[in-house]
Design a binder for these strands. Sequence first.
DNA 1: ACCGTATTTCCAGAATGATCGAAATAGTGA
DNA 2: TCACTATTTCGATCATTCTGGAAATACGGT
Lengths: 124, 124
Amino acid sequence: MESGQAILALGALAQDTRLDVFRRLVQHEPDGIAAGELARLVAVPQNTMSSHLAILLRAGLVTAERQSRSIIYRANLAAFQAVALFLLQDCCGGRAEICAPLIASLTPCCPPPKKKRAKEKADA
Amino acid sequence: MESGQAILALGALAQDTRLDVFRRLVQHEPDGIAAGELARLVAVPQNTMSSHLAILLRAGLVTAERQSRSIIYRANLAAFQAVALFLLQDCCGGRAEICAPLIASLTPCCPPPKKKRAKEKADA
DNA sequence: ACCGTATTTCCAGAATGATCGAAATAGTGA
DNA sequence: TCACTATTTCGATCATTCTGGAAATACGGT
C-alpha cells in the first residue's frame, strides 16, 4: 500500500462520525447497512451522511452496492487490514519491539494462527 | 484508549509531513531527533515543522525533551501501539477474521513471541 | 405516467488546517 | 552583559473540511 492511500484512509477514520460509521459497518459485516439507516443510527442528516460515506468510499474503506431503492454500504475489511498493516510495517520498519507486544495484545482477542493441526488429520 | 484520543492520533498521522516525521522518529528510536534537524531532513521551514510537531505532541505520539539548546523529539512507541490496538480492537469488536490475517502478516516482520527453540518438535 | 421513498449533488457559511515570514523566547558560551 | 543558535509563537493567507438546506437523480409500486 502506498503512503498516499494510507493517509487518505487514516484521515477518513480520524473523524467522529466516520469512525462511528465504520465501526457499525464492521459489526454488521456481511450484511451491510443502508445509507439512510446509517444516517438515522448516527443521527445526522442524510446529505451529511452521504458526504461522509463518500469520503470513506474514496478512501477505499467501504463499498457501496445498490439494492433496489437503498444503497447498502459494507466495510472493506481487506482495505482496513491493509491500512493497519501499512501503519505497523511502515512505522515498525524492522523494529520488532513495536509489533511484538502488539501481537501479544491482539492474540487474546483473536484466535492465534495455530500451527499444530495434528488431530484433525488423524480423524480421517 | 478513548475514541477522542485515537481520532487525534489518527488525524495527526494522516498528513504527509507528519507521517514522514513520525516514521523517522521511530527509526531513530532511542536517540530521537532535534526539531531543527527534523526540519532540515524533511525540508520544511522550522516554524512549519514546529507546528507539525506540536500536533504530534498534542496527539501524544511523540515526546519532547530539551537538551541544552536543542529540543529532542522522540516517538512514543507505547502511544503508537495503543492507537493501533484501539483501531484493531475497536473495529475488530470480537471479529477474529479481521485480526487473524493481520497477525499472520505481521509475524514475519517481527520475531514471533515464542521460545527460540524451534527444533524441538522435529526431534520427537 | 405519477407518486413516494432513498440517496446524492449543489451550494454556501463557519470552522479548522497548512504554510511561512517576522518577531519573540530559551539556552549557551565568551 | 552581549552575541549566537535553536525553537516556538504570532499573524496572515490560502486551502480544505464539516455541516445542512434545497434541489436533483434513481428506483419501485400503482
